[in-house]
Design a protein around this nucleic acid. Sequence first.
DNA 1: AAACTGGATGAATCACCAC
DNA 2: AGTGGTGATTCATCCAGTT
Lengths: 369, 369
Amino acid sequence: MTKMDRMQGAQTLPLNTILAGDCIEQMAALPDACVDLIFADPPYNLQLKGELHRPDNSRVDAVDDDWDRFASFETYDQFTRAWLTEARRILKPDGAIWVIGSYHNVFRMGAALQDLGYWILNDVVWRKSNPMPNFRGKRFTNAHETLIWASKSEGARYTFNYEALKAMNEGIQMRSDWVLPICTGGERLKTDSGEKAHPTQKPVSLLHRVLVGCSKPGDVILDPFFGTGTTGAVAKALGRDWIGIERDPGYREVAEARIGKVRKFDKAALEVTRAKRAEPRVPFGTLVERGMLQPGETLVSATGKSARVRADGTLIGLDVSGSIHQVGAALEGAPSCNGWTYWHFVKDGQRVPIDVLRQQIRAEMHAAR
Amino acid sequence: MTKMDRMQGAQTLPLNTILAGDCIEQMAALPDACVDLIFADPPYNLQLKGELHRPDNSRVDAVDDDWDRFASFETYDQFTRAWLTEARRILKPDGAIWVIGSYHNVFRMGAALQDLGYWILNDVVWRKSNPMPNFRGKRFTNAHETLIWASKSEGARYTFNYEALKAMNEGIQMRSDWVLPICTGGERLKTDSGEKAHPTQKPVSLLHRVLVGCSKPGDVILDPFFGTGTTGAVAKALGRDWIGIERDPGYREVAEARIGKVRKFDKAALEVTRAKRAEPRVPFGTLVERGMLQPGETLVSATGKSARVRADGTLIGLDVSGSIHQVGAALEGAPSCNGWTYWHFVKDGQRVPIDVLRQQIRAEMHAAR
DNA sequence: AAACTGGATGAATCACCAC
DNA sequence: AGTGGTGATTCATCCAGTT
């Protein structure tokens, strides 16, 4: 792309503004092949039924906004295919799209992307370091969301800043799973009355990684579900042009104010994004799952006690069952016990502390970082 | 389910065998509602174009077997919907399914599951601790695969061993992202000539977590894409019955030999941490009947509320009377309240939760059994 | 001042049995 | 099948207020 092209585009495109209205209609008013990258965080169609309370009886503030309600999967699919069709038309031939969703909607979006001729490059998992737990103990903690990265078509020469991402990841190739905290604290935009300005504000760190990895300075980034404008804020800071589309006047107002305060190349703000990296916790159950220890196998202590391993990674001794720490403490009559050093397995007649197995797993995890 | 039902099922179902042939035809020959859990690892529809080479020019041994090739998304969808339809028919009403895939096929499977009436419970990310790097540096390291866990229909009472999974994870509830290594080393089955026996053999650890978490001893587990039989091997070790379906005689042979060598873990090892919900119900009135609490006695809460015990096992407070739960909820203005943990009696100046008395009764019931 | 404590909160498809 | 009663259930983080 020459400088001249960019100048012409800049004259006709509503750069660095928020378009008011429905995203399909607003995209329809844009010319063909004018956008380098699209980031889209559409309604998830959560289909929540009743209220949910935490064990302390406080009420969970659910996403029950009108914009997230659809009559059926069919209705949702029609909506999805309509906006993805317009999005593809306005993408440049070597442009790309990122979409984000949860299991409620992401499978439908992925299938639609493929059907419409997009070419999926990766799916990326945003592993939340601090998700909301499953309060009723009925399912796994819903601890991630899924992003899909796709080019406009097969064979397109999409932008991928491999070295920048590798540098961002301490010299190791960036993987398809990203550990990032959810948007809380000072980053979370509030109304004057102290409520959250938007129920699903995405963290700056997520957009930072997407835009650093998959766009260049001067690129045009479009977000058809702009909300409170995280995409615009990060694009501005990184020296990209942006176009937002948002229906809700309240969200637009918050986004305008927010982006107005952003300074270009504000490196200090971007450094906040790094996720903390502590020594990984290795549950004892992992050793059992991986077959390093067998259910039924006997562990022994230096004091001559013994217990047997169960399939769920608990131990069972005489009259007691529970974690390696609990059973160790009970057998010794002690208030607490470090099961990792207390318990040993027997190999070739030798007692080996189970902590040796934990070290092996930690070594693997470290290599995979 | 009674013992008799299980015996009848055992007589008609081809338990603990590998059925030879196409999975749709073989499932069609099974009766309605006969299976507790399905684990399915279908062809991924990978669509690899040419050969892939590492930086040192060695060739990557990719999945390019015939069974993994489909002419188009339409063909793949037809196949997917056909086998998922049969799978749903043979599932018991409270049964569930796990499917695994990558971005090539998982979006199509997820949408099909929803369209066919399955109810998605979680999507789970298998985060590989040792994935193959992206040799060309054109994309993110493809470091995960996606599993979908779904019940047969909305509202079904699926099996979820919450406490066992929590125990397996050092006392913290299990999340939707699982870090597990890929299947390598001694676990990876080889042919006589030393090649991989199957291109996509799944690790035992993955199936262990699925089966410990979502099935019970004695359940019937079906795997319609059996391959080298990881599902059968883990099911046998965990004391579950299994049915495999596999087209390829070579894979069947490897699987048979493999499963023949597996030993079932003993009964004590298969016992898993039990949920409190499984404990017998004790009416509060029993404590009064047995004289553990006296009619007229005052109970107190940690929040400073109080109420008095009546002879019929109800409480009476200011303006309210009813069960321990109802009075607690009313006094707190809460939607619900667990009276067992909310109310305390006073002994030697100390507040003691009435749940302690319930535990005494349960211990007696246990001893008398 | 630094450390500690209590409260709040986040895209959530979050019981089950007896009558 | 619908209703009502019992009673089981949470992790990481940030902030405000206190020691």
